[in-house]
Simulated assay, not measured.
Amino acid sequence: MSYVHPSDFVTKMIDAGEAKVFMSTRDTLIRAFMAGAILALAAAFAVTVTVQTGQAVVGALLFPVGFCLLYLLGFDLLTGVFTLVPLALIDKRPGVTVRSMLRNWGLVFLGNFAGAFTVAVMMAIIFTYGFSTAPDEVGQAIGSIGEGRTVGYADYGAAGMLTLFVRAVLCNWMVSTGVVAAMMSTSVSGKVIAMWMPILLFFYMGFEHSIVNMFLFPSGLILGGDFSVMDYLVWNEIPTVLGNLVGGLTFVGLTLYATHARTGLTRPRPVAHDVPVAAE
C-alpha cells in the first residue's frame, strides 16, 4: 500500500523538522534558493497562462507543478519549515533549541528570497527585452498585482491589515497541508496528487504566500509598479510571513502532532453485562 497512516507520517514530520535543524548552512541555503527560484518560475508561469487565456482557474490548476517539483527534489520553503521544525522542538528532540530553529528559519528565508529575486530579475528582462521596451502584457499584470496587494490593503487601514493577515494564515494552512500530503504516500503519483489539491486551492483563492510574494513584488517594483519597497514590506511581506507562521503551525503542525503523536487518553469502554437467558 502506498498510503501512509497519519500516526506514521506525523513521525516523519517530526524527523524532517529535526533533520532540517542540523543541516549545514551550505545545504540549507542551496535548497532554499532552489525552492524560491522554482516557485517563482511557477508563479510567472501561472500569471502568464492567466493573462493569455483570461481564465484564472487555468493558471491555478497549473501553478502546483512548481510546488510538486521543488518538494520532490528535496528543496525547502519557509512556509514548510514553519510547520515542521517547531515539532522537533516540541517533541524535545536532543539538540533542537529555539536558537537552532530560528537559525533554520532565517537561512531558509534568505535562500528563498535570493532564489525568488533572481527569477524576478530574469523574468523582468524577458518581459522588457532587456529593459529596452515597456513591460509586455504579463509584466503589466504582475505590476498591477503588486499595487493591489500593497497600497490596495493600505487603503483600508486596519481592516486591510487584518484581511492580509487572515489570507496569509489560510494560505499556509493549505500550503503546509500540501507539504504534509507529500508524506502521505510512498509513490510519486500519490505524492503529486495529494500536494496538488491544497496548492490549487490557495492559489486560486488569492491567499498570501510569503515566497510567491518574494517574486511578485520585486518583479512589480522592477517593472514600474506604483508602490514602494516600504509598501511591500509593511503592507505585505512582514504580515504575510507572520500569518504564514500562524497558519502552518497552528492548523497543520500542532493539530496533527496533538492528535496523532500525543494522542489523548482513550475513553473507557462500557462494560458488557451478561443478559440472562429466559428458561424454556
Rank of each mutant, 00 (worst) to 15 (best):
F113Y: 03
G111S: 08
P64K: 04
P218L: 09
G157H: 06
L70N: 11
V81Y: 11
P135M: 10
T11L: 05
S24Q: 07
V241Y: 06
Y153M: 08
R99S: 08
L256S: 00
V108L: 01
M230T: 11
P268S: 14
P198L: 07
G54N: 11
V96G: 01
A120M: 00
S144K: 13
R99W: 09
A120G: 00
N236D: 15
T186L: 07
Y257G: 01
I14N: 09
L39N: 09
A88M: 09
D226T: 12
I193V: 07
A43D: 13
A261T: 00
R167W: 11
T11S: 06
Y232K: 03
S189R: 10
T97G: 06
P270C: 06
Y156S: 13
L87E: 13
C171W: 09
L62E: 12
C171R: 02
L77H: 08
W173A: 07
G111N: 06
G190S: 07
V81K: 05
T240N: 00
R31Q: 09
G160D: 14
V51E: 09
I126D: 01
A42C: 08
G243W: 14
H273T: 15
V96C: 00
G160I: 13
V175P: 04
V277D: 11
P198K: 06
L84E: 12
G74E: 13
C171M: 05
G146L: 07
T50N: 10
T266Y: 07
G143M: 03
I38K: 00
F217C: 01
G66K: 10
L69I: 14
I30S: 08
G36D: 08
R262E: 09
M214H: 01
F82N: 11
W105A: 08
F45D: 14
W196I: 14
L265Y: 11
F63L: 03
L70T: 14
F67M: 01
V119L: 03
A16W: 05
V4H: 04
A182E: 12
A159S: 10
A16E: 10
N213H: 02
L164M: 12
G253A: 05
